[in-house]
Simulated assay, not measured.
Amino acid sequence: MTEQEVRRYLRQMKDENSEQAFRGFYDLTYDRLFRIAHYYVRRGDWAQEIVLDVFMRLWEQRKKLPEVSNIEDYCFILTKNASLNYLEKEARHTDRNSGQLSEPAGRACSPEDTLISEELFARYVKALDRLPERCREVFIRVREEKQSYAQVAEELGISIKTVDAQLQKALARLREMLLR
């Protein structure tokens, strides 16, 4: 997501109440916000619902969005909080319906471990976003969606060797960006 493009969409959303600008902003940011939500809830249908709720909230706040200094981080935090709230709501609903107390989790993470994990994930999502489109697509399909090289090659109309080369390129760039 390019900062200049996002800022243009945000200004249009504020000044003109432009649904077309909102659609452009949506198209530019949906995949990234979906990955964030999916990281927390681990279910595609829940992640999709969460992201749609986040976009509703962003539309409602469109007048204030141009004032946000780092919209990328703002959207990350909105999506993370919405995901955690959704999980909490689902846990309460499940506990109420089961009539039992949920089992305590094994070893609870310390707040410091949680913060480090979330910061690392945020950096990963930003780095993934900065990959060239084909690299990112191959990486997501192979590493996150667990598709085989052959499946990816067939669906994208490329050779298996190209899939491997794009994956290696993505891994090298991610490693470089994350270790800075």
Rank of each mutant, 00 (worst) to 15 (best):
M1D: 08
M1K: 02
Q4S: 15
V6E: 15
R7Y: 08
R8I: 02
R8G: 08
Y9T: 08
L10V: 03
R11P: 02
Q12K: 06
M13G: 05
M13I: 12
D15M: 09
E16L: 15
S18F: 11
Q20S: 06
Q20G: 09
A21G: 06
A21R: 05
R23A: 13
G24C: 09
L28I: 07
T29C: 05
Y30P: 00
Y30D: 00
D31F: 08
R32H: 05
R32P: 01
L33K: 05
L33A: 10
L33N: 12
L33C: 13
F34A: 03
I36Q: 03
A37H: 03
H38N: 08
Y39N: 09
Y39F: 15
R43Q: 12
R43K: 14
D45S: 02
A47K: 04
E49K: 04
V51R: 10
V51P: 04
V54R: 02
F55R: 06
F55W: 06
M56D: 13
L58D: 00
K64E: 12
L65I: 05
P66S: 12
E67D: 15
S69W: 07
S69L: 11
I71Q: 12
C75H: 02
C75W: 01
C75L: 15
L78A: 09
T79W: 04
T79F: 05
A82H: 13
A82D: 07
S83V: 01
L87Q: 04
E88D: 01
E88R: 14
E90W: 09
H93T: 13
T94H: 06
T94A: 08
D95K: 14
D95I: 15
N97G: 11
N97V: 09
G99I: 00
L101N: 01
S102V: 08
S102I: 13
E103Q: 05
E103V: 08
A105N: 03
G106Y: 00
G106S: 14
R107D: 14
R107F: 10
A108D: 03
C109S: 11
C109N: 00
C109M: 08
S110M: 04
P111A: 04
P111L: 02
L115H: 06
L115E: 13
I116E: 10
S117M: 11
E118H: 01
E118I: 05
E119R: 04
E119S: 10
L120F: 10
Y124C: 00
V125S: 10
K126M: 11
K126I: 04
K126H: 07
A127H: 00
L128H: 10
R130N: 15
L131P: 10
E133V: 11
E133H: 10
E133A: 15
C135S: 06
E137W: 01
E137I: 12
F139N: 01
V142M: 10
R143Y: 07
E144V: 01
E145I: 00
K146Q: 09
Q147P: 04
S148Q: 00
S148G: 10
S148H: 00
A150M: 04
A150R: 09
Q151K: 10
L156R: 12
G157N: 01
G157H: 13
I158V: 05
K161P: 03
V163S: 01
Q166W: 12
Q166I: 03
Q168L: 12
K169I: 00
K169F: 06
A172P: 02
A172I: 06
L174Q: 04
R175H: 02
L179I: 02
